[in-house]
Design a protein around this nucleic acid. Structure first.
Length: 426
RNA sequence: GCGGGUGUGGUGUAGGGGUUAACACGUCUGGUUGUGGCCCAGAAGAUCGUGGGUUCAAGUCCCACCACUCGCCCCA
């Protein structure tokens, strides 16, 4: 037991039963993204460490060292398992000269990313994410498009009762001014702050806004709000985003405590929340990052997007009691008695498969009772058991027994494929 | 990195110092010659997370470690 090799901490096996949820999520994501005119692409799972360490800016070195999977190559270069997608998209946009394409470029991808943190509900070290980005566009309509894409996905999957959290995080012009005002306010209450919040106050003041310490709700209710400190450009942008959402009848909650600590985030930030999937209620998080391209050594390029974890969407679906379409049944099960009948059954199974018809063949080295084969077929949920016995063999036939009930019939072996195809869409 | 909870067949549990570790579900086989589900009978499957300690005796008590889990930190 103890010597068995076990799953690495924070990794997950997704068993077939659960994987069906993934199918549903991924299929819906592709449908919706396609409908919105986004194209799928693949990004490498490994990128240069600098892509992430530079991209996240200073003041965030802590998690860069502690929470990324980074390896050193023999030549000394350092490579990292991607902890997010946005930086990779921006890198790809720049490197592939996408700024010369018709703008904006609308892309999405689905795949794994990695973070070395203590696992908890809906937060594993490897998780899969659906990620959409609009690159090369600063129109607030792009922000809204991305938001509506996320909401459309959840609606399509059958979600109800989600709350849409919206805020603006300002830009390099107005954000620093706001931070000053916030710090000035919080300084006045320094003695009331928990140790952790005092630390945040000096390291990354915006984070105090989403403090979970008790008493903070009341204290922060009186704090200065970013919305009152936005520069003209950001204020107009935010107003247009809200106006478009109103126009679309998309309800939202302005959440002045919704923040992004990283510098390259500008203007729009949003999350979609759902109760009951653990401490992390966010189904997706996104926003605008007009400063990112320059951070990673590219020309100024606006962008907006969001990421949504597949595992968390699945958790949420279960939480909401969203049912999946039933698993596809095994339509045909080939039973036999060994020897020549096994040869014939094998032959028929492959003939069915070659014709695109799913068929399951009974296995056994020494021959098995029909009973046990029937039982297996039943457990598999097979619709028909096709019995190939001595009798059938000599007459060039197959016995077709419907498991759901009904008469058992004989089918000439030569007509089996046509017969099976006809049963398939009953 | 920090804190809480939990570790007994595949799954869910019982057993709280006394020797063959129990039950349910699941799996497999059989219930006459070639027919599933229900029922019946039987079988396989657990060194009780690991290591140490206390004791004549340890799933049972003690310690440590590990894993899982929930949360904190952090959140790209």
């Amino acid at each position: 037991m103890s010597k068995q090799i076990q799953r690495v901490t924070g990794m997950q096996d997704v068993l077939p039963e659960d994987r069906r949820y993934w199918d549903a999520v991924i299929a819906a994501a592709e449908r919706v993204a396609g409908r919105f005119g986004f194209q799928r692409m693949e990004l490498p799972i490994i990128e240069a460490e600098e892509l992430f360490s530079r991209g996240v800016g200073e003041g965030s070195d802590f998690f860069v060292q502690k929470e990324m999977y980074t390896l050193t190559e023999p030549d000394g270069s350092r490579i990292t398992l991607r902890p997010e997608f946005t930086a990779g998209f921006m890198r790809a946009y720049i490197q592939n000269g996408m700024s010369n394409w018709t703008q904006p470029v609308k892309l999405y991808t689905i795949g794994p990313s990695f973070r070395r943190e203590r696992p908890q509900a809906g937060r594993l070290r490897q998780h899969s994410q659906f990620n959409c980005e609009v690159l090369g566009e600063d129109d607030p309509a792009a922000d809204v498009e991305v938001m509506m894409l996320a909401m459309s996905l959840y609606r399509e999957l059958g979600y109800t009762g989600l709350t849409f959290q919206l805020n603006s995080t300002g830009c390099p012009v107005c954000k620093p001014v706001y931070i000053k005002a916030l710090v000035a306010y919080l300084d006045g209450y320094r003695e009331q702050l928990a140790d952790i919040d005092k630390e945040r106050l000096s390291k990354n003041p915006l984070r105090v806004l989403d403090s979970k310490e008790k008493g903070m709700d009341a204290l922060l209710a009186g704090a200065p709000r970013i919305a009152d400190h936005l520069c003209d450009d950001c204020r107009e942008h935010f107003a247009e985003v809200r106006g478009l959402l109103d126009e679309l009848d998309q309800t939202y909650t302005i959440n002045f405590r919704l923040v992004r600590g990283i510098d390259y985030y500008t203007k729009t930030v949003f999350e979609v929340w759902q109760e009951g999937i653990g401490a992390q209620a966010a189904l997706c998080g996104g926003g605008r990052y007009d400063g990112l391209a320059e951070d990673i050594g590219g020309p100024p390029t606006p962008g907006v997007g969001f990421g949504s974890g597949v595992e968390r969407i699945v958790l949420g679906m279960k939480e909401q009691g969203i049912a999946l379409p039933p698993a596809p049944p095994v339509p045909f099960y080939l039973a036999h008695f060994g020897g020549a009948t096994k040869m014939a059954a094998t032959q028929l199974a492959f003939r069915l498969r070659a014709a695109g018809i799913p068929a399951r063949l009974a296995f056994s080295r020494r021959g098995r009772s029909l009973k046990s084969q029937m039982r297996e077929a039943d457990h598999l949920g097979a619709r028909y058991v096709l019995i190939v016995g001595e009798d059938e063999l000599t007459q060039g036939q197959v016995t077709a027994r419907p498991l759901a009930g009904g008469e058992q019939t004989r089918v000439p072996a030569g007509e089996l494929v046509a017969w099976a195809r006809a049963r398939l869409d009953e």
